[in-house]
Design a protein around this nucleic acid. Structure first.
Lengths: 149, 149
DNA sequence: TAGTTAGTGGGGAAAAGTGGGGAAAAGTGG
DNA sequence: CCACTTTTCCCCACTTTTCCCCACTAACTA
């Protein structure tokens, strides 16, 4: 299960060095095969290939007449790129995806259970501050209000 | 069950020495494996690994399309770092988490039942004073009004 | 008062993150 | 189809962080 926040630098060639603690799990579960795609919040999502494949199956089954479903499919499926850990544990982020998420030098890799998110460091901090200041402003969700942790 | 308030110092490398009274319980229940994450009130939460894992299971099941649920997952899961008691009973607080909670030298470790909270000492005192002065200003909750203690 | 235990501080080896040279592969244009 | 440019990837070197270990001081106990 992937967790935690990792501040990292992209090198001049747009590569991201995956922190060592995640490498072995990624090799074990996916042979180092990964899939990158985009998220609505202008970050990238990084899945181990087998996990992505199950997400993909769900997406494909979504309605083709509902416009929100079509939009979601275009975003996720349409931007998905396969990539692999190289010999030194890095992945090359394709230029179009890098541009989409405004990734230049400082980025954060955020563990989210079965996947990672990759954010521009500044954008991540801004998002977090806005959330903490702004308080509750999303849709309601009953399970959320019942949560104790 | 963890209780009580413990004023402590971080050393120059950002390490926190867990008070001796908690060490054996932590070794017994979690093999010294702990998880640190952040809280909305700008403090850190420290869980024994097994306790955290049950929190995590709840989080993972939350919707990925609901924005409040995504936000909560990002905060809690996204900042969760596994760490272990070292040979001298200390844990290293990762720099990003230290920055988030403004932890430099003086901190307090507060027992909260199944977990701990770690506060900047000043922030803790201020928060408590503000609460005592300010009175009631949070959301309502039926169970709360029925509480006898 | 002496001995023991807890909290604090820091040196130094090992590991992880960062940066870039250069060969191989892929893409582009004539 | 070939030549040229760009991108990808392997490798090595440098810097920073992490972690193991030991030492010092303050407090409590006997």
């Amino acid at each position: 299960m992937f967790r935690g926040i990792n501040p990292l630098s992209l090198d001049g060639k747009g590569r991201l060095a995956v922190p060592t603690k995640y490498r072995q799990p990624l090799l074990d579960t996916a042979g180092g095969q990964l899939v990158l795609t985009i998220d609505r919040d202008r970050c990238l999502l990084l899945y181990p290939l087998p996990v992505w494949e199950s997400v993909e199956r769900q997406l494909i089954q979504l309605s083709s007449t509902n416009s929100r479903a079509r939009a979601l499919k275009r975003l996720l499926l349409g931007h998905a790129e396969e990539c692999a850990l190289d010999a030194s544990g890095r992945i090359l982020l394709p230029a179009p995806l890098r541009e989409f998420a405004n990734l230049e030098k400082r980025v954060v890799l955020v563990g989210q259970g079965n996947k990672f998110e990759i954010w521009n460091e500044q954008a991540w901090n801004d998002w977090r501050e806005a959330l903490l200041k702004g308080g509750d402003d999303g849709e309601s969700l009953p399970e959320l209000d019942a949560l104790a942790f």
